[in-house]
Simulated scan of single mutants.
Amino acid sequence: MRKGFMKCIKDVTAVRKSWGELPLKFALSMVLGVVVCEMAAGALLAGVELQTQLLILRLVELIVIGLLINYFKMGDNLGLGRPDAEGVRVFAVLAAVTLVLFVILLLVFWLLDYALLAHLAAPPWLAGLAGLLLMVLLAPVVEELLFRGLIFRLLRRSFGMLLSVLLSAGCFALMHGQPELPQIFGGIVFALAYEWSRNLWVAVALHASANAAALLFVLF
């Protein structure tokens, strides 16, 4: 299995596309758009239930980012096309490894000290269909566009692959407010998947599956 995994990675590394230039104007517009959305949400949705706030915020952010991607014609640059055969192979291998290791990490945390995972059950936005939509659909797409499509790509312009992966994973973990091994591990895996496949949908799919695993762990 190890030989097959390494062969898969080498094959993809050999045929993967080179990174295109990420225009600074697009990056700044994307950051500004997200900041404006966050500020507007805080002002306009102050009296709204938290779950509804987050749902509206992520949906608006996704629309704004989508409009910017379309305006700057950045779809191909970010790797938002259909994954090729090699990209699908990488996704299949990494999805299996990620799921197993992620569940093991959660189980270890639970066995050592349940309090380490207690915050996962606390947020009210995890409940119901809206929580599922947020965690498994909207959050993975928006966060992958920001942390892999933008932050990782900007770091990748100036630093090597390894340092860019680690730094972007650190930013991703800090964004969650209480960074722990699952977030750091996830950030590393999502960035590696994007680096090797050059397709952002592969990272989105892995992120969504990891979130679904965490949600199921909390619920059951």
Rank of each mutant, 00 (worst) to 15 (best):
M1F: 02
M6I: 13
M6Y: 06
I9F: 06
I9N: 02
V15S: 02
R16A: 14
K17R: 14
K17Y: 13
S18N: 11
S18Y: 07
S18T: 05
W19N: 01
L32G: 14
E38M: 15
A40V: 05
A41N: 10
L44Q: 13
L45Q: 04
V48Y: 05
E49C: 01
T52D: 09
L54S: 00
L57W: 03
R58C: 00
V60D: 00
E61W: 11
L62Q: 09
D76F: 09
E86S: 15
E86M: 14
G87C: 11
R89F: 11
V90M: 10
A92S: 07
V97F: 03
L99S: 10
V100P: 13
F102C: 00
V103C: 13
L105T: 08
L107G: 14
L107C: 14
F109W: 12
F109T: 02
F109V: 06
L112V: 14
A118D: 08
H119L: 08
A121W: 00
A121M: 00
A122T: 15
L129W: 12
A130D: 12
G131E: 02
G131N: 03
V141M: 04
E144H: 06
F147D: 07
R148H: 05
S158R: 12
F159Y: 10
G160W: 08
M161F: 05
M161T: 15
L162F: 09
L163R: 01
V165P: 01
C171T: 09
F172V: 15
E180M: 15
P182R: 13
G186A: 11
I188Y: 01
S197L: 06
S197A: 12
L206C: 07
A213P: 00
F217S: 04
F220A: 08
